[in-house]
Computed example of a mutant assay.
Amino acid sequence: MIRYAHAEDLDAIAALHRQARATYYRGHLREGEFLGPEELARGRAGWTAAVAEGRVLCAEREGEVAGAAAFGVRDGVMYLTQLHVAPAHWRQGVGTRLHAACVEAWRTAGVTTARLEVYEHNARAQAFYAAHGWRPDPAAPRAGSHLVLRLTLPAGQE
């Protein structure tokens, strides 16, 4: 089931975020840069704000949070800021359902284009996004160590 996140989900979402980031940053960044106390607190604060603003969707399986996606407008552009699936639920369609729910929310809001930034060494995420129609953003293909992707949402298509 996909639903909007509630404050009660924050512990599970924060744990999921830690776990997911460790899978793609480990070996590329010092552990303190993605799992240090300040970074964990910053991540928790970001998720708390996004949940309070109604910008987080959760995938729930058997009463547990199996994935989470956050989105919001920045500089007039819709961004998919986070999409994480618990490794135990990889390759089971959780990410695809979360992505589809985000796209539907954007369409309902009249959004026709969205952007995201994906870590350059996160090949799994890059393949996922490519399979869902995301392409390099020709206006700004990089942001530091991240690739910038864009999704155009033609009416009635995903």
Rank of each mutant, 00 (worst) to 15 (best):
I2W: 07
I2R: 05
Y4N: 10
H6G: 11
A7Y: 01
E8C: 12
E8S: 15
D9R: 10
D9A: 11
A15N: 05
L16M: 00
H17F: 08
Q19P: 03
A20W: 03
R21W: 13
A22F: 05
Y25F: 15
R26M: 03
G27A: 02
G27I: 00
H28L: 06
L29V: 10
R30W: 02
G32C: 00
G32M: 04
F34R: 00
E39A: 14
R42C: 03
G43V: 11
G43E: 03
G43W: 03
R44W: 04
W47N: 07
T48I: 03
A49F: 04
A49K: 14
A50Y: 08
A50R: 15
V51D: 09
G54D: 05
R55N: 12
R55A: 15
R55L: 14
V56T: 04
V56Q: 07
V56P: 08
L57Y: 06
L57V: 11
L57C: 11
C58R: 08
A59K: 01
A59Q: 09
G63D: 00
E64R: 15
A66V: 10
G67Y: 07
A68P: 01
A68L: 03
A68I: 06
A69T: 06
A70I: 10
A70F: 06
V73N: 04
R74E: 12
R74F: 06
D75S: 13
G76I: 11
L80D: 02
L80T: 05
Q82P: 03
L83G: 04
H84F: 15
H84N: 11
V85L: 06
A86G: 05
A86T: 03
P87S: 06
H89M: 11
R91Y: 01
R91D: 10
Q92M: 14
G95C: 00
T96I: 05
R97W: 00
L98W: 04
A101T: 04
V103L: 13
A105V: 13
A105W: 00
R107T: 09
A109G: 04
G110Y: 00
A114M: 09
A114V: 10
A114F: 07
A114W: 05
L116F: 05
E117M: 14
V118T: 08
Y119F: 15
Y119S: 09
E120A: 14
N122D: 12
A123F: 09
R124E: 03
R124V: 13
A125D: 02
Q126P: 08
Q126T: 07
Q126C: 12
Y129D: 01
A130D: 04
A130G: 05
A131R: 14
A131W: 00
G133P: 01
P136K: 10
P138W: 08
P138C: 10
A139H: 07
A140F: 02
P141K: 09
P141D: 04
A143N: 13
G144A: 11
S145L: 14
H146V: 06
H146Y: 15
V148D: 01
V148R: 15
V148L: 04
L151P: 01
L151V: 12
T152M: 05
T152D: 15
T152S: 13
L153H: 12
P154V: 12
P154T: 11
G156S: 14
E158Y: 12
